[in-house]
Design a protein around this nucleic acid. Structure first.
Length: 481
RNA sequence: GGCCCGUUGGUCAAGCGGUUAAGACGUUAGCCUCUCACGCUGAAAACAUGGGUUCGAUUCCCGUACGGGUCACCA
């Protein structure tokens, strides 16, 4: 059975690139009915951010990436928070020392810093690699702080297979004797993720391609313990493009790049998931572009994952988001939009009708206030707004006539709904021998103060009601005098 | 700098030796229409580059250029 995991470290917000990794990992796990594990990698005690784990969990919950094992839900391989597994790592590290694949290192930070100053790319000089057993015992007994380092082979080549990138080989001389256990007794990522992945039965390691060149070191660890290597699936990076057109790893300088930023800006989780699923992956045939999470589970295969990095395109996300919003049930839309509405909606406004008009015209929820403002307050406008070449309105006489006629009719209209309004006003066009467009153009501007509006004149009047409509027409008439 | 990886329109991308090189976003010209939006019909726009291999390379191999990643007591 396929078992995948998402193993973030709780250091802050949920980066969109991280979310994509979680998504792909989830999809690979679930594609053929396997398991998806959530593991919290909190071994860096200095970078811990309070509440970050909750952000991770809520993001996963909101997007539907539910984990089968992990915090809150438990499982047979817990605990799923690395800080609670501390003893396990030390035990395995010591075992590795005994087997001759790791060693104690007593070098001070100062010495290491000096080494770095002398040669920034030189790495550790393996000073403690060949300490005698007696020296080690003595140092340990004296309580000198230590770390445990992996003993890398100094020659030869280490190779592994990656499902996306193919075969990767590294000369062993490139490999550093990396630290497995830190002086504070916590393991490094380089070590504990291997232990955990093995212990938790992870079959597919899915992560960003920044790990491509360090994976040989991990593979060596599996080999040292005599464990079966997992299947590696490295994902291409997510990039961003800045104002100057430069492309680099997606980061804050490119805008809102955390899941919660996007949600706060009015993007729907489903739209975000749909969009990022297509960033670096393409379904067989490459045609379908709308996917629910279930459809993604069905369609997702590793051979559709791309090797080259992709640039995150906010324009296209916006388009996706608009599509998702437009397809929302009115009721659901009303529910979702509520927290974004920052103003009091007056009594006269038919909120249901207004939201229905707006729903199909906004691309993200945060646009709502700006888009509905004219319903609530008539914008300031000059009478010249009525002039329009296409409708052959060159002077204000026709506008005045139309509005006067309209006013007379509207005063007597009982039911102020769109159909009735339209039917009642149409005779004016006939009487004056003007086109529907011309007729409505005059009225629409009078009741909206805008040349482009969501919905037509009669729809707007339905929203703002009889009293307000007449008031706005009167105001227009005054302007025209 | 060493090592690793990548390179199809502005962006996401299909393609897996022979194609008029799909599709989507964006841009743009129209149509529709009660303006806008939707929808519909079009348009412009791409195989980084030089060598091979082959009857034939966008596709396979090598070099070059460009881009990215990585070399931490961070993950």
């Amino acid at each position: 059975m396929t078992v995948t995991r998402f193993a973030p470290s709780p250091t802050g917000y949920m980066h969109i690139g991280n979310l994509r990794t979680a998504l792909y990992s989830y999809l690979i796990g679930k594609h053929d009915g396997g398991k998806f594990i959530l593991r919290i990698e909190d071994t860096d005690r200095e970078r811990l951010v309070e509440g970050a784990t909750d952000v991770i969990k809520s993001t996963l919950n909101m997007t539907g990436l539910l984990w089968d094992e992990g915090p809150d839900v438990g499982g047979d391989h817990g605990p799923y928070v690395q800080s609670e597994r501390k003893e396990i790592y030390m035990e395995y590290a010591k075992k590795l020392v005994e087997m001759g694949h790791a060693y104690y290192c007593f070098c001070t930070k100062e010495r290491l810093e000096k080494l770095h100053e002398e040669d920034a790319m030189g790495g550790y000089d393996r000073h403690c690699r060949n300490l005698s057993k007696e020296e080690v015992e003595a140092n340990l007994a004296a309580g000198i702080p230590f770390v445990i380092r992996q003993k890398m082979p100094t020659e030869g080549v280490t190779s592994y297979h990656d499902e996306v990138f193919g075969d990767i080989s590294m000369n062993n001389e490139e490999l550093q004797d990396q630290i497995l256990m830190k002086a504070d007794g916590y393991p490094t990522y380089n070590f504990c993720h291997v232990i955990d992945d093995h212990l938790m039965g992870v079959t597919h390691v899915v992560r960003g391609s920044e790990y491509l060149t360090s994976t040989p070191k991990y593979v060596l660890l599996y080999d040292a313990y005599g464990w079966e290597r997992p299947t590696y699936v490295h994902l291409p990076l997510l990039m961003g493009k800045d104002a100057e057109g430069n492309i680099s790893k997606l980061s804050k300088r490119h805008g809102a790049v955390s899941f919660q930023d996007l949600v706060a800006d009015g993007y729907l989780p489903e739209a975000i998931i749909n969009y990022i699923s297509l960033l670096g992956w393409c379904p067989k045939g490459g045609e379908q572009e709308f996917f629910t999470l279930d459809e993604l589970k069905e369609a997702f295969t590793i051979d559709g994952v791309s090797k080259s990095p992709s640039v995150f395109d906010f324009e296209k996300l916006l388009w996706f988001n608009g599509e998702y919003i437009h397809k929302l049930e009115d009721e659901r839309f009303t529910e979702l939009i509520a927290p974004f509405i920052k103003v009091e909606i007056p009594e006269n406004i038919n909120k249901t009708r207004m939201l229905a008009l707006l729903k199909t015209r906004i691309a993200k929820l945060s646009e709502i206030n700006e888009r509905m403002a004219f319903f609530i307050t008539l914008p300031e406008y000059e009478k010249e707004l009525f002039l329009n070449k296409k409708n052959k309105i060159a002077d204000f006489e026709i506008v005045k006539t139309v509005l006067t006629e309209a006013k007379a009719i509207l005063t007597d209209v009982q039911s102020f709904d769109n159909d009735t309004l339209f039917a009642s006003l149409m005779p004016i066009a006939e009487k004056l021998s003007i086109k529907t467009g011309t007729l409505m153009w005059c009225i629409r501007i009078a009741v909206s103060g805008l040349t482009a509006t969501p919905g037509g004149a009669t729809e707007i009047m339905e929203v703002i009601g009889k009293e307000e409509s007449l008031k706005r027409i009167d105001l227009a008439l005054e302007k025209l005098i």
